[in-house]
Write a protein that binds this DNA or RNA. Structure first.
Length: 300
DNA sequence: TATCCAAGGTAAGTT
DNA sequence: AACTTACCTTGGATA
């Protein structure tokens, strides 16, 4: 086992691990205490786990936040991976400086200051957001855990057996019926067929990275079960497009209430308008703070 | 206790 | 291109 600690006091804008991992950005982490996300409180030890891959081999990583550090233990050297996955190198102050001064938005930043945008592995992020359609945030985690347990490669860590997130080939080999048994519902064929596309080399979500934003979003919608909203989630939470603003039910009702002039009818045009309104290149950050703030009753 | 409803939407079929 | 409708499942609300 390897271990380390990342200093947080020198980090611009600080860090809030719980807000980062429990704000509906990523469904690929879980709490060591076994409590569901949305339980509101930290467990007694505060550890969160996830898996990653190093040279194709699955690895387990766990982290917890202390006063001044992000402490980690893993089956591999995890410093660089954690910096990327948890957005630790982002300059939060510079990002916030680009956000509009509206009270609602500033209140959201104040409430969860230190929350960062994650960077999930592309395929796992894609699958998890396909699963997110019309699903409660608290249930999406469970579906990803079921997928791990049923199809993921086992990996030992600290005396326990965990499961890596399934590879495209592992999910492509699943049947729709298998996936429906895991309670994916109508998302089952979406996941199976998308996995098949990636496994067959027809397309790869990671290939969207580097394309201009709207082209990248268009590229992702070729996957089955991926519309513009899910594509925006993958761009924002996996591929580093911090300008992406997923138009979900929460942000849509926020637009109705606070930014009605941004409602342009179509997704593409409303997306442009709200992106502009929320500060352009970092609009996704404001959206993520707003989403978490509103979902937890802020702004009432 | 039974029924209803909406959840971080998308695909397929019409107009 | 814009507008309907069907779609799995389930926790929480309502009767």
């Amino acid at each position: 086992m390897k271990a380390g600690a990342i200093a947080l006091d020198s980090l611009d804008g600080g860090f809030d691990l719980q807000a980062t991992l429990e704000s509906g950005q990523s469904y690929l982490w879980w709490r060591a205490d076994g409590n569901d996300y949305d339980a509101g409180t930290h467990g007694d030890d505060g550890w969160y786990l996830t898996t990653t891959r190093a040279a194709g081999d699955p690895a387990v990583v766990r982290v917890r936040q202390t006063e001044t550090t992000l402490e980690w233990e893993a089956s591999i050297e995890a410093d660089g991976i954690l910096r990327r996955r948890l957005g630790l190198d982002a300059d939060l102050s510079a990002i916030r400086a680009d956000a509009p001064g509206d009270e609602l938005i500033q209140d959201a930043y104040d409430a969860y200051w230190g929350m960062r945008i994650v960077s999930d592995p592309a395929f796992a992020g894609l699958v998890s957001f396909i699963c997110s359609a019309q699903m409660r945030v608290s249930r999406i985690h469970g579906m990803q855990q079921s997928l791990r347990a049923a199809f993921g490669t086992p990996v030992e860590f600290d005396g326990e057996t965990y499961h890596a997130f399934p590879t495209p080939a592992q999910l492509a080999a699943a049947s729709e019926a298998d996936l429906r048994e895991l309670k994916l519902g109508y998302r089952a064929p979406y996941v199976q067929r998308t996995a098949e596309m990636v496994a067959d080399g027809e397309a790869d979500p990671a290939d969207a990275e580097g394309l201009p934003y709207e082209e990248a979003r268009k590229y992702l919608t070729q996957f089955v079960g991926v519309g513009q909203k899910v594509a925006d989630c993958v761009l924002l939470f996996s591929l580093g497009y911090l300008e992406a603003v997923p138009l979900d039910t929460w942000i849509r009702s926020t637009i109705e209430e606070h930014f009605p002039e941004c409602d342009r009818g179509s997704y593409a045009e409303t997306s442009r308008a709200i992106r502009e309104r929320l500060g352009g290149q970092y609009a996704g950050y404001s959206q993520t703070y707003l989403f978490h703030y509103l979902r937890n009753g802020g702004g009432d």
